[in-house]
């Protein structure tokens, strides 16, 4: 498979504190890469670097390179372009303060889609892909903030899909959800595999095992190990990975 994202010697500082140390890895097209690790291991910073949300924090410093389809996202692309192609689903599903329809049409509209017909089509497809269509199709004009937690998270996924990204980043997308909602979100991820490259940061090791093709283990800002999910969970090469998986720390 082709490498979609190639990260080389990536280091990130926040106001002088190094949160990511000299990291190199690649993400293949159409795979789900699970990223696990204890708190403060740099997982979220890693994700936010991939779609340049770190730019918003003026105290952050980044070195090394991140390439998307061979293009350096920090030097050869502008932030909006990167974020359109590499979309993010956040830990807390927060719909924008507008209707369900407008939440999903928000991205396409910003990228120049004006026709009502086309927008309706995009909204329907995105909601279907996120397994939400059946539940909300009769109340598209009601506020997105009135949905339940699981529905809100799927709405956020649908809104992400609507901009037709190439890569979707998930930052602990199920941390606030019940098991049934979690299962639905995971179903959506598996369904999306054929079309998107996905990176899933999670605290839930089992979730990484359930949906990840490959899994990376981060510790204190370092990449300890990356490998096939089956191999990493059953026969970790590094002692620290084994310790984490067996619950000795973190």
């Amino acid at each position: 498979m082709v490498d979609k994202i190639v990260v080389e010697n990536l280091s990130i500082d926040y106001g002088g504190v190094r949160v990511l140390k000299d990291m190199s890895l690649s993400v293949k097209e159409h795979e789900i890469l699970g990223v696990i690790g204890p708190a403060n291991s740099g997982k979220t910073s890693f994700l936010r670097a991939l779609n340049r949300l770190n730019d918003l924090d003026i105290s952050s410093r980044l070195s090394g390179s991140i390439r998307l389809n061979g293009k350096d996202i920090n030097r050869e692309m502008d932030a909006e372009e990167v974020r359109k192609k590499v979309a993010m689903v956040f830990a807390l599903p927060i719909p924008l303060p507008m209707s369900i329809f407008d939440n999903i049409a928000y991205g396409p509209r910003r990228h120049g889609v004006k026709k009502k017909k086309k927008l309706e089509e995009i909204v329907e497809q995105s909601l279907k892909a996120a397994f939400l269509w059946e539940e909300v199709k009769d109340r598209l004009s009601s506020s997105g903030m009135k949905l339940s937690g699981g529905q809100q998270q799927r709405l956020c996924i649908a809104r992400t899909l609507a901009v037709e990204p190439e890569v979707i980043l998930y930052d602990e997308p199920c941390s606030g959800l019940d098991p049934i909602s979690t299962a639905k979100v995971e179903d959506a991820m598996r369904e999306l595999k054929n079309r998107y490259t996905q990176i899933l940061v999670t605290n839930n090791v089992k979730q990484a095992a359930r949906v990840g093709d490959r899994v990376a283990f981060f510790l204190m800002g370092e990449l300890v190990e990356i490998g096939e999910a089956g191999q990493l969970f059953t026969a970790p090469k590094d002692k620290r990975t084994e310790d984490y998986l067996t619950g000795r720390f973190g």
Binding site: K85, F90, Y106
Partner: peptide
Amino acid sequence: SYKEGSLALGATHWQTIHRVIIPA
């Protein structure tokens, strides 16, 4: 999160201010 949500969808800073922050 509103701001980040909007930016993460590829909206520009101005679009975010105009469409999300001011209405909110």
